[in-house]
Deep mutational scan, measured.
Amino acid sequence: AEIMKKTDFDKVASEYTKIGTISTTGEMSPLDAREDLIKKADEKGADVVVLTSGQTENKIHGTADIYKKK
């Protein structure tokens, strides 16, 4: 799966169907969080990951919607 910015995804959204939401939390780098989200998306058969939230304090927390091409 590839990560797309919401603004970029909005241009092609009609080509995809939302298949779920994924999240990651833990003591990790932003890059590790990104890789974890991609891994989870791949496991669910998603083609595209669109980040919906991200937070960093002591731990990273990120959520994303996942989509499959129609």
Rank of each mutant, 00 (worst) to 15 (best):
A1D: 02
A1K: 02
E2M: 15
E2G: 06
E2D: 05
E2C: 15
I3F: 09
I3H: 04
I3T: 03
I3E: 06
M4H: 02
M4F: 06
M4S: 02
M4W: 13
M4Y: 05
K5G: 09
K5Y: 14
K5Q: 13
K5R: 08
K6Q: 14
K6D: 09
K6P: 08
K6L: 09
K6E: 09
T7C: 12
T7I: 11
T7D: 12
T7H: 10
D8I: 04
D8E: 09
D8R: 03
D8L: 05
F9V: 01
F9D: 01
D10H: 06
D10F: 06
D10V: 07
D10N: 07
D10G: 05
K11M: 09
K11I: 07
K11G: 05
K11P: 05
K11S: 06
K11L: 11
K11V: 08
V12P: 00
V12Y: 05
V12N: 02
V12F: 05
A13N: 03
A13P: 02
A13M: 07
S14D: 10
S14Q: 11
E15T: 07
E15Q: 14
E15A: 10
Y16T: 00
Y16F: 07
Y16G: 00
Y16H: 00
Y16L: 02
Y16Q: 01
T17L: 10
T17N: 08
K18I: 08
K18N: 05
K18W: 15
K18S: 05
K18C: 11
I19G: 01
I19F: 05
I19L: 10
I19W: 03
I19V: 06
I19C: 06
G20A: 07
G20N: 01
G20Y: 02
G20K: 00
T21I: 07
T21Q: 11
I22K: 00
I22W: 03
S23H: 12
S23N: 08
T24Y: 11
T24Q: 05
T24K: 01
T25E: 13
T25V: 15
T25M: 10
T25D: 14
T25H: 13
G26H: 11
G26R: 12
G26W: 10
G26T: 09
G26V: 12
E27H: 12
E27R: 09
E27S: 11
M28L: 12
M28F: 06
S29P: 07
S29T: 09
S29H: 08
S29G: 08
S29W: 11
P30Y: 14
L31Y: 12
L31N: 13
L31A: 15
D32V: 06
D32R: 10
D32W: 06
D32S: 09
D32N: 09
A33L: 10
A33R: 09
A33C: 10
A33E: 07
R34I: 15
R34S: 07
R34Y: 14
R34F: 14
R34A: 08
E35R: 14
E35I: 14
E35N: 13
E35Q: 13
D36A: 11
D36C: 12
D36V: 09
D36Q: 10
L37V: 03
L37Y: 04
I38G: 02
I38M: 07
I38Y: 03
I38A: 04
I38P: 02
I38F: 03
K39L: 06
K39Q: 08
K39R: 13
K39A: 07
K39Y: 04
K39D: 04
K40N: 03
K40F: 04
A41N: 02
D42F: 11
D42L: 13
D42M: 14
D42N: 15
D42I: 15
D42A: 13
D42C: 13
D42E: 13
E43S: 08
E43C: 11
K44A: 15
K44R: 14
G45Y: 05
G45M: 05
G45R: 05
A46S: 03
A46C: 03
A46N: 00
A46M: 01
A46P: 00
A46R: 00
A46H: 01
A46I: 01
D47E: 06
V48A: 05
V49S: 00
V49C: 05
V49L: 14
V50A: 01
V50N: 00
V50D: 02
L51H: 03
L51Q: 03
L51Y: 07
T52D: 09
T52R: 14
T52C: 11
S53M: 13
S53Q: 11
S53R: 05
S53E: 14
G54M: 15
G54D: 14
G54P: 15
G54Y: 13
G54I: 14
G54S: 12
Q55E: 14
Q55Y: 15
Q55S: 14
Q55M: 12
Q55F: 15
T56W: 14
T56C: 14
E57P: 13
E57L: 12
E57A: 13
E57V: 08
E57N: 10
E57R: 03
N58L: 12
N58M: 11
N58C: 12
N58F: 11
N58H: 12
N58K: 07
K59D: 14
K59E: 14
I60M: 12
I60K: 09
I60S: 09
I60R: 10
I60G: 13
H61K: 11
H61M: 11
G62F: 15
G62C: 15
G62R: 15
G62L: 15
G62M: 15
T63D: 08
T63C: 08
T63M: 10
T63L: 08
A64F: 14
A64Q: 03
A64L: 06
A64N: 02
A64V: 07
A64S: 03
D65W: 05
D65T: 08
D65L: 05
D65Q: 04
D65N: 06
D65S: 05
I66Y: 03
I66W: 00
I66A: 04
I66S: 00
K68M: 06
K68H: 04
K69M: 07
K69G: 04
K69L: 08
K69Q: 04
K70P: 03
K70Y: 04
K70S: 07
K70H: 09
K70D: 04
K70Q: 05
K70A: 07
